[in-house]
Nucleic acid binder design. Structure first.
Lengths: 372, 372
DNA sequence: AGCCTCCGTGTGAACGATAAAATCGAGGGT
DNA sequence: ACCCTCGATTTTATCGTTCACACGGAGGCT
């Protein structure tokens, strides 16, 4: 049934405290504390003795006690969203992982909570902060008219956002991927490959990232003087492969069909690839496709895609929220800290779906053959 | 730059404590505490007065202080994995959300951390528990020879797993989806539809869920007396649509090709659907396909799929780990608690990819038309 | 009247850790 | 011999909350 009746000593029934260590080492509590927090104040000999006892007893400083004393919980709050779409999900996963990893390096952990909607999320954030359970919070998936930044600012909760609203972005800290530059670089790449009619597949207007991606496509097409040829090749729908397929078929059926498309997500792009092949066209040779997000599926299928530096965003956002919580801005006369506004450049990963003419790439190259 | 220079009162620079409330209400700390934790011990009149002051001052009990006093952090630890495959990711998202939601109902939160591998994860779990940062931990994505349950048991860390190892399952608490029953029900469904040669697409041996799904297919096929016709139709590879496609093509090229396949994941299944259509066959009519996980993609594409009751698993796992942490098993003479072993039945969601003969289903039915 | 009980409230201690201040001993300068 | 400094360590106080107990007054019972 259970392992053994009397454990040797690996799992102490009573957790070992700093006093236990002090007693065992023949010093006072504070000396043990100094060994851990200010080793230079302790004589080398004593330090070694205490360190050994700490290891022997398996002592770990109590997180709650430390947080209480420092009145800093060393926790960053973050909501986990229910599964909306596949794309969001994939990003959420990677973002949360990046946050957790970045926080861990400075001894901070992630406190995850669920909330029904953004209003409930803002309330939760405020409550958690007031209760001293988190020193700050992270927001993501920001919509243009998102109420969260405003409410948290009003409540005085330190936070940093991945993404930004349409207005008021100067008053809070955020980091965002330059979606506009992402789709623009995709267009540049396609133009350089000789394409002149370049379509766009994306969400309907109303999302922050989506609108920026559409805008990047539009301005880049215009900049290359291809607006007249391309501006009718802008189609929108919800983010599924099915819709991507349908939209692409529509485009190909038009009088002046595109020779290349930029998709707002890999999901759209995968759907588009199917549609291309359905029409008996060769993806990458007859019609080029570039996706967005560089999902595992893109790598597997040889789909060119714009890679978001999610890990970097996570690091930045975590670093910023920690900076904000470092010294509360309410403190005496201190000048209020300048909020962070950072736009990170995404990176276009070229694969077979948009560069078949590359010939046989060297082994291990990212431009793997298109196998659909 | 910043909103205002002197906030009216919404964000108190100094957090309001229980003593502040006590002073403002003209009672002692303990009375305020009683109002919150044992209202029946306080006279109604006093209770109302204190409650009002609490609301006015916006008092929230300090989480850290409460945890320290109770020596129970009301936190459950859980690792977040880096993105392995798409399938894992989708499940991870939903599982973490289910956990967070279930925990919230009893005032518990999720502490997320990153770890390079299972060994590091076990170490982190132990450290977090020793440090009193979590009252217990949750494991998931368990492999047959997973070292985590053993190590955590040895360290005395309360935990519950989503999934189980090959041996020793009786000594720890777990909940799992009955993967075997899932693929078996898919086979039953296909047999009922008249299929006799039923293939299987899955991972190579070595994963817990994967082996169980393969086993379910095999035993069900055998039970229906179709082993001879089907046993050579078992193909394996990594979990990508590309591989799914390739494997399906292989199956269809064989002498006695399958008229239906059961896939270990929706990813395999989506790939299989592509291959079917490539051969000029009609998915659902000529060749039936059933996936696993009921991902959003499956719903969108009309792919029949076995749905895992993730939400229910999350609730169960959270409830169990809270039960385990309720009273430490090390306490005096108390009989050790019986660990939980629970197998949850998945549910087959039939859609067009395996039941085209259903004709036009009533509007809103799950058996939506197959649009690939 | 005297004693016990019960109810509402207040006081002291403790949870485990750490910042700040006090203490102690050794050495150095005059 | 005295004072001073300096480094190593201990003592004291504190973070915000809750448990265990003490206290005082009202009421009932003998």
């Amino acid at each position: 049934m259970t392992a053994g009746f009397r454990d040797t000593r690996p799992s102490p029934a009573q957790p070992v405290t700093i006093s236990d260590v002090a007693e065992a080492a023949g010093v006072s509590r504070q000396t043990v504390s100094n060994v851990l927090n200010a080793p230079d104040r302790v004589r080398a000999e004593t330090r070694e003795r205490v360190t050994k006892v700490i290891a022997d007893l398996g002592y770990h400083p109590n997180h709650m006690a430390r947080s209480l004393r420092a009145s800093s919980p060393r926790m960053i709050g973050c909501r986990i969203q229910p599964l909306h779409a596949e794309t969001v999900a994939a990003i959420q996963d990677r973002f949360l992982h990046a946050l957790a990893e970045a926080g861990q390096e400075c001894g901070h952990h992630l406190l995850l909570f669920a909330a029904a909607d953004v209003a409930a999320e803002a309330e939760q954030c405020t409550a958690l902060w007031r209760a001293g359970a988190v020193s700050g919070v992270v927001l993501y998936d920001i919509t243009p008219d998102d109420p969260r930044p405003g409410r948290l600012t009003a409540a005085g909760v330190p936070f940093t956002a991945f993404g930004r609203t349409a207005v008021g972005t100067e008053s809070y800290s955020w980091a965002d991927v330059d979606n506009t530059a992402g789709t623009a670089s995709a267009v540049d790449h396609l133009v350089a490959a000789g394409h002149r009619r370049i379509g766009f597949l994306g969400w309907p207007e109303g999302s922050s990232a989506g609108d920026a991606r559409a805008h990047g496509w539009l301005t880049a097409v215009d900049r290359h003087g291809l607006l007249a040829a391309s501006h009718r090749l802008d189609v929108r729908g919800d983010d599924t492969t099915t819709t991507g397929s349908r939209l692409m078929r529509e485009l190909l059926d038009r009088p002046g069909p595109p020779t290349a498309v930029v998709a707002a997500t890999d999901t759209f792009a995968v759907g588009a690839l199917h549609a291309v092949r359905d029409q008996g066209l060769r993806p990458g040779r007859d019609v080029a496709v570039v996706g967005f997000d560089d999902s595992p599926a893109a790598a597997a299928m040889g789909l060119s895609s714009v890679r978001q530096p999610i890990k970097e965003v996570g690091r930045l956002v975590m670093a910023e929220v920690l900076r904000l919580t470092g010294r509360p801005p309410g403190a005496d006369g201190e000048p209020p800290q300048e909020p962070l506004h950072r736009l990170l450049a995404p990176e276009l990963v070229v694969r077979a779906s948009s560069a078949p003419s590359q010939g046989s790439p060297p082994a291990g190259s990212d431009a793997s053959p298109l196998c659909l």
